[in-house]
């Protein structure tokens, strides 16, 4: 390696690990699960519908859980109040939609997409802002104490849900997708909902953006290193508290984004909407490996597609399949599919 090589490699941040040396086994398991399901389901069109629905569900869980895994992995904070940001995101979406009815009911794809972008931005920024306040007032006081974290963040979520009900009322609200996003594509015998396809695209783009940020930017390096050893990051002179706060805000914003995706999928809105995804989110981040975005993405897809296949084949086993999957993965890899931390 000559001086020029050193200088050039030094200033460019990027993962140089050979792709062939990556751990492909968890991804192979997802593919294997899909192929096994195809054999049992029999009909390719039903299989395609089930797979896409599972992928869409997985992406929604990933969007919500991606911030949570970084918060848990880097900050070692058990934020049981994360669902509150999903709720706030969903209600902000409702509020913006109410104001932009003209754009959402118009039979014009561009106007519909503009409305959707506005909804996502307001929900993510609003939830992120709330996350900043939540960290300042609640989480900051309980760093390093898991029991207090669980209690106080759950308490915070209850308070936020009550405030949401005070503002928007406790009645169930109906949410409709923008006109162009309703309906489905028919591909042979398979029916593919437009919105599910959109969610898959959104989730994939988010994953790629996060993966690129974590592997090709200095802040990404800091986050990855901090997940492994937060103490050492401080000893290298980095003000990790600022990183914590920034990450908490981003994680909360992502939950708000997830809230938008989830409420459109669900079609109805109540204050407990955030809590619905949290058990799945925690299962996914434990299964994926704390702090691992790739692990979170793969395990969200694995859990959701398997649950979908099982719900079709053996409906009474749908919920149980997720727990069996969790137990199997943790027995195989106790620190998750892509372990980063020593926890």
């Amino acid at each position: 390696m000559n001086r020029q090589d050193i200088s050039e490699t030094a200033i460019s941040i990027g993962s140089t690990t050979n792709l062939l040396k990556r751990d492909w086994l968890p991804i192979m398991i997802v593919i294997a699960a899909a192929l096994i399901a195809l054999a049992f389901v029999g009909s390719p069109s039903i299989w395609l519908t089930l797979t896409l629905a599972g992928l869409a569900m997985g992406m929604m869980v990933f969007i919500v859980a991606s911030g949570l895994t970084l918060i848990f992995g880097l900050m070692d904070v058990l934020n049981f109040g994360h669902g509150a940001f999903v709720t706030v995101g969903a209600y902000l979406a409702y509020a913006v939609l109410t104001m932009m009815t003209g754009l959402t009911v118009a039979d014009n794809l561009l106007l519909n997409v503009l409305a959707l972008i506005a909804v996502v931005v307001v929900a993510a920024v609003g939830a992120g802002l709330l996350g900043w306040i939540f960290e300042r007032i609640i989480v900051r006081r309980v760093y390093g104490d898991h029991l207090k974290q669980i209690l106080i963040t759950m308490g915070g979520m209850i308070v936020i849900e009550q405030v949401v009900m005070m503002i928007w009322g406790s009645q169930e609200k109906l949410i409709q997708l923008p006109t162009s996003l309703r309906g489905a594509f028919v591909m042979g015998d398979a029916v593919v909902e437009k919105y599910r396809l959109l969610v898959v695209v959104f989730g994939s783009v988010l994953f790629l953006a996060m993966y690129f940020s974590l592997s090709h930017t200095r802040i990404g390096l800091l986050i990855r290193a901090g997940v492994e050893d937060a103490e050492m990051i401080q000893a290298l002179g980095y003000r990790i508290r600022r990183l914590f706060v920034g990450l908490f805000v981003v994680g909360s914003g992502l939950a708000g984004f997830g809230g938008v995706m989830w409420v459109f999928y669900r079609g109805t809105l109540t204050a407990d909407i955030g809590g619905e995804l949290m058990i799945l989110a925690f299962i996914v981040i434990i299964m994926g490996g704390l702090g691992s975005i790739t692990g979170c993405f793969i395990s969200a897809i694995l859990v959701s597609v398997v649950a979908n296949y099982v719900a079709f084949l053996v409906p009474e086993m749908a919920m149980t399949s997720t727990i069996i999957l969790l137990v199997a993965v943790i027995s195989w890899r106790p620190r998750g599919l892509f372990p980063l931390t020593k926890r």
Binding site: I6, T9, A10, I13, R218, L221, R224, A225, L236, G237
Partner: peptide, 19 residues
């Protein structure tokens, strides 16, 4: 930081951003 390359470990230590 075991998940990071040797180079990335060194990049983090060079807080000014370049070697």
């Amino acid at each position: 930081f075991g998940d990071l390359s040797v180079r990335e470990n060194m990049i983090l230590a060079a807080r000014r951003g370049k070697f």
